[in-house]
Amino acid sequence: MNLDWSIVWDHRSELLHGAMLTVLLTVLTMAVAVPAGIVLALMRLSNSKPLAFASQCFVEFFRNLPLILVVYWAFYVMPVFLHIEFSAFTTGLVALCLNVSAYNAETFRAGINSIRKGQTEAAMSVGMSRWQAMRTVVVPQAWRRVLPVLASTWVSLFKDTSLVSVIAVGELAHVALQIRSSSFRVLEMLTAMAVIYWLMGYPQAKLVDWVQKKFEVKE
């Protein structure tokens, strides 16, 4: 078994570009999925039955599907239904946003619900509106409970970006697998791919641990 690790070094700029795209996908998805999650959570908690039901359907739907399937499905369905040709990148991004928004919606809903009703009642009894109570009393407290879960969702998302490689988005997994195919250096490229993900992912996982420790809620 002769290994040639120089292949990794030779393609370092492509791999770096792939890694950057991975990060870009993660950042963009979160940028969309956090506000979307908040909106969905508020819809679910609102007094309007149709809004709550619509939100619940959306969330349950995307939480109960494999992401890779959503990626494929978006790839084929979006051009047909929306009559525009999307780039693979956009398609992948849409699939990721749909998926993560659903998880975030649950995170925010659980966070808001975990604040005792008495807090809202106390705020309203001094004359605040329900909305003011939410803003000044509930949300500031709920953030502490939400942040650790968001951090862990972030790391999961970072790993899930690898799935959009199946529709040829040029993030890290796709780039590495392409180089593997063209160079036949299977072991070297696959190991390099795993190591690069590990180098990026391990610190993030440790950061999540730190966030969870810091914002730990002791009942």
């Binding site: 799935l163 299977v186 791919m193 795993a194 996982a205």
Partner: peptide
């Protein structure tokens, strides 16, 4: 455990099968 948390499933599957 931390390593498994850091690497995507896709990468682990592919590495396992081929490598």
């Amino acid at each position: 455990i931390d390593t498994q948390r850091a690497i995507p499933v896709l990468v682990i599957l592919v590495w396992f099968y081929f490598a």
